[in-house]
Every structure is written in structure tokens, then in C-alpha cells.
């Protein structure tokens, strides 16, 4: 095949430079809140009051990393980080594994049960969490699913809707021939699923994993109601608790903890940006 790949010629008009400038200013406005928090996390307590929130961490106001040390110690932050990590990783892995299997069953079996499962999942996506918050937390309590190490089962239950929906959408468009060929070659359904179907589904696995991670990592209300707040605090719970429990909140420590919370997410985002944005688009198209 001849190489006829045309190089796209981009003609830039003067107005495009103006647009670039406007967008650049807008971008600065967009990053500013995060930058402001970073600045404030480096300041002494007296320089973080409402009237001085915009001042820079220079001169006497500069406090080095003292707020970070103070915040991490006082809030038991590393513990929270661990709980958040355990919950997120276990939930997302479980959701991806179980829901992709369930979705394959739903998309390949033509029965009333399969249809019911599918429509129940779609339905569950619309239901607001407040509808089930009390009964769900009581159910979790009585089944002892109230520690960071097994709350993933609750997340699987409440997050199944979106995941099954997204996987089914993709799997319905997959050609049956490959699976049938594997079957004739002597694979049982489990082997077909893990050796043939799952590898093809990889793009959807990534997008679903990203959407579910964003949800579980940032979720506040579900862990608050299900976990015992005295024993286990995830990061969002910790920040809310810290805020509520002190008469005068120690803003410096608070800001430092917020920075520690968002920096890893932003770094992760910059590294796998491409997948995250594709995941969002894929999620939306299925929706």
C-alpha cells in the first residue's frame, strides 16, 4: 500500500491566538483553587484566616512543612490513606471481575432471568443513595460487612448497576464466532471467558475501572454510614470529621491534609490521562 498519508495542514488565524490567550487565562483560574490550598498549607496558622487567605507563604507567614507533620500525626492520616486504598482497590477489582462475568451471562443467555438482571441494573443506576442509606447500613451491620476489608461486597452490590450495564453494552457488540470457535476447540465457559472474552473487553475494563475508582475513592456517605467511625476513617470521612470535631479548626493542618489527598490523584491523572478521558467518553456513550 502506497504511503499516501496526507499531513494535515493547520491554518491558524489571528483570532485563534486570541482564543488561546483567553483559554490560558481561564486555565489559570481553573488551577488557582488548588494552588491556593498548596500555598496556604505552607503558612502559619495566623496567616490562613479569611482576610489573609490570598497572601503568599513568604516571610513570617512561611511555616515550612510543619503543617504537614502536624496534620498527618493528628489526623492519623496514614491510617486513613490505607483504609481508602484497601477499600478502593478491593472494591474495584471485585466489581470488574464479578460484573464482567455477570454481564457476559446476561449478554449471551436469552432468558427472562437475564433480562430481569439487566433491567434491574439499569434501574439501580437512577436510584439515589438516600433511598437505601439507612436500610443498607443496617443490612451491612447485621451481616458484619462493616470493616474496610469486606465493605467491598457492599460496593459490589451498589456499584453493580453501572458496571454490568457498561460491560453488557460492549459484549453485545462482540462477534459470537470467536467464542464458538473456542468452544469447538474444547474450552469450557470459564476458559472461554478468561482466555477469550476478557482480553477483548480490555478497553471497557479500563473505563469501568476508572469510573468506579473515582466513585469509591471519593465516596463519603456510604463508608460513613457503614463503617464504625471510631475505628475506621477513610480520607473523606477523616477530613469531614476533623472539620466538625474541633471548636476552632486548625486550618493549616487541614489544608496540608487536603494537599496530601489531592496530589496523588492529580499525579495519577497526569500519568494515565489518556485512559481516564477515554473512559469518560466510553461511559457517556453507553449511558
Amino acid at each position: 500500500m502506497a504511503k499516501t498519508k496526507e499531513k494535515e495542514i493547520i491554518v491558524r488565524k489571528p483570532i485563534d491566538n486570541v482564543i488561546t490567550l483567553i483559554l490560558a487565562l481561564l486555565s489559570l483560574l481553573w488551577i488557582y483553587p488548588v494552588v491556593m490550598i498548596i500555598f496556604n498549607s505552607l503558612k502559619v496558622e495566623s496567616a490562613i484566616s479569611t482576610d489573609k487567605i490570598f497572601s503568599l507563604p513568604i516571610g513570617e507567614a512561611f511555616n515550612g512543612v510543619a503543617n504537614y507533620i502536624h496534620g498527618v500525626q493528628q489526623m492519623d492520616f496514614l491510617q486513613s490513606f490505607w483504609y481508602s486504598l484497601v477499600i478502593t482497590v478491593s472494591s474495584v477489582v471485585l466489581i470488574i471481575l464479578c460484573c464482567s462475568m455477570c454481564a457476559w451471562y446476561v449478554s449471551r443467555v436469552n432468558s427472562l432471568v437475564a433480562k430481569c438482571i439487566y433491567y434491574l441494573c439499569v434501574f439501580s443506576m437512577v436510584v439515589p443513595f438516600q433511598m437505601v442509606m439507612f436500610t443498607l447500613s443496617k443490612t451491612a451491620d447485621s451481616l458484619k460487612l462493616n470493616t474496610p476489608y469486606n465493605i467491598c461486597i457492599i460496593y459490589l452490590g451498589f456499584g453493580a448497576g453501572l458496571a454490568v450495564f457498561m460491560f453488557t453494552g460492549f459484549m453485545k457488540s462482540m462477534p459470537l464466532e470467536i467464542e464458538e470457535a473456542a468452544m469447538i476447540d474444547g474450552c469450557n465457559p470459564l476458559q472461554i471467558f478468561f482466555k477469550v472474552v476478557l482480553p477483548i473487553t480490555k478497553p471497557t475494563v479500563i473505563s469501568t475501572a476508572i469510573l468506579e475508582t473515582m466513585w469509591v475513592w471519593n465516596d463519603y456517605l456510604l463508608p460513613t454510614l457503614v463503617l464504625d467511625i471510631k475505628k475506621y476513617k477513610t480520607i473523606p470521612m477523616n477530613i469531614q470529621y476533623f472539620r466538625g470535631s474541633y471548636g476552632s479548626v486548625q486550618m493549616g493542618a487541614m489544608m496540608a491534609c487536603i494537599v496530601i489527598t489531592i496530589i496523588p490523584i492529580i499525579v495519577l491523572y497526569l500519568v494515565c490521562q489518556k485512559y481516564i478521558i477515554e473512559g469518560v467518553v466510553a461511559g457517556a456513550v453507553k449511558g
Binding site: 434491574l120 461486597i153 457492599i154 448497576g161 469450557n188 470459564l190
Partner: peptide, 28 residues
Amino acid sequence: MEKAIKKYWIIFILPTMAAFLIGFVWPF
């Protein structure tokens, strides 16, 4: 093929459905 998958329903749909029952249907 459909029949073969159906036989494996315990592995394919039971875990999700059990959790779904606990985490959504019953509380609802």
C-alpha cells in the same frame, strides 16, 4: 453455547446477584 453458559450460572451471576441483593434490592 447458551446451554453451556447456563450450566455455569453459579459462577457467573451468583456472586454479583448475591451482592446486588444485599447492597441494593433488599435495602430498597
